[in-house]
């Protein structure tokens, strides 16, 4: 871990000012990912700006009837919040399927969006990695890639975003509110994370001096028909091989609206509007769900160790949609 300076910010303006003065400064909140990366010499900030005392730690209703999650609310406090549990149970489920109780007590909602990939090569400074050191090459493409992406990859990077929470937020079409030197912005969730393309070192569309202030949930919470299915290599405390957030609007057995987001398969939570629209006005049944799964995974490409994810994702999509439609009870 490098030596660094430490500043404690108590309001947003001073936090942003601090950040804009030093290009290699970083905000720190929960620290569960940044300190990890600093110990591996992957992240090497020269200054940490501690934002834990910035008052962004509340959950409150928005004017449009949605819910605003302050960026510094912990994952645990979000998952167990009465309103979230009641109106956005999909989000609760997703959060609680990630990490451990201890980490969820530390990690913040804003930080969850900014966590970096778990790619073995990204984490190991002895190996080349375009995300860590642009231009050095991607070791995963021809290497060990069990955890890696099958959708939206580039020849520069096949890393996946590791979050569970973000998969639910993508399905819920949350809005990320940020502020920076150039004022406030609201970023639709689907535009927040990026695909690797030729710039795999850049994970999100957040500017260097910008800070997430809140994650706003729209009024529609899909509390009646939702499912979060996480498939992983052990029963707990493991990152997803594939995860699916499914949310349905139903009229009897007829589907009026569909939201489907996948984790563990791409550099960002994966949505396919085209696939979601397939279900509009259709009945909830295995064939229709299978068609959705095929459409979502159309064009998916495996790299050897991870090729099974293509088939697994299809199975998981069908299963999650069945759970959401209550065709079968989640197990």
């Amino acid at each position: 871990m490098n030596n660094f300076s430490y500043t404690r910010a108590t309001d947003i303006t001073s936090a942003v000012n601090e950040a804009s003065r030093e290009a290699t400064a970083k905000f720190i909140a929960g620290g569960t990912n940044l300190i990890d990366l600093m110990k591996e010499n992957v992240a090497r900030p020269t200054r940490l700006i501690d934002i834990n005392r910035v008052p962004l730690n509340r959950i409150e209703e928005t004017k449009d009837g949605g819910l605003r999650l302050g960026a510094l609310v912990t994952n645990a406090d979000t998952a167990y919040n009465d309103q979230v549990e009641k109106r956005y149970p999909l989000l609760s489920r997703a959060i609680l399927s990630g990490a451990s109780a201890q980490l969820r007590n530390m990690a913040t909602d804003g930080g969850n969006l900014l966590q970096r990939t778990r790619c073995y090569y990204f984490y190991d400074v002895a190996t080349p990695c375009n995300k860590r050191e642009p231009g050095t090459g991607c070791s995963a493409i021809e290497g060990f890639n069990r955890m890696h992406a099958v959708l939206g990859t580039s020849d520069q990077c096949i890393a996946v975003h590791p979050s569970d929470m973000c998969v639910a937020l993508a399905a819920l079409e949350a809005v990320v509110r940020v502020t920076g030197k150039n004022g406030d912005r609201a970023i639709p969730f689907s535009d927040f994370h990026r695909l690797p393309g030729d710039t795999p070192q850049i994970d999100t569309n957040l500017e260097a001096d910008e800070i997430i202030t809140s994650i706003d949930l729209p009024p529609k919470g899909f509390a009646d028909h939702h499912a979060y299915l996480k498939v992983r290599d052990r029963h707990s405390y493991a990152f997803a091989l594939v995860s699916v957030a499914a949310a349905l609007e139903m009229d009897g057995n007829k589907i009026k609206g569909t939201r489907l987001a996948l984790g563990g398969v791409a550099h960002k939570p994966w949505r396919s509007k085209e696939a979601e629209e397939l279900l509009n006005g259709k009945a909830a049944n295995s064939d229709n769900f299978q068609a959705v799964a095929e459409t979502v995974m159309h064009g998916a490409k495996g790299f050897g160790h991870n090729t099974f994810k293509i088939d697994l994702a299809k199975r998981a999509i069908v299963r999650a949609l069945k759970h959401a439609a209550q065709m079968e009870a989640p197990r």
Binding site: G30, G31, I35, N52, Q102
Partner: peptide, 21 residues
């Protein structure tokens, strides 16, 4: 989880926490 302690009553991983924070 070997480093688990309670900070302000909550269990956390003390290895992922800077003391100064």
């Amino acid at each position: 989880g070997a480093c688990t302690v309670l900070v302000d009553g909550k269990r956390i991983n003390s290895c992922m926490t800077l003391a100064i924070m």
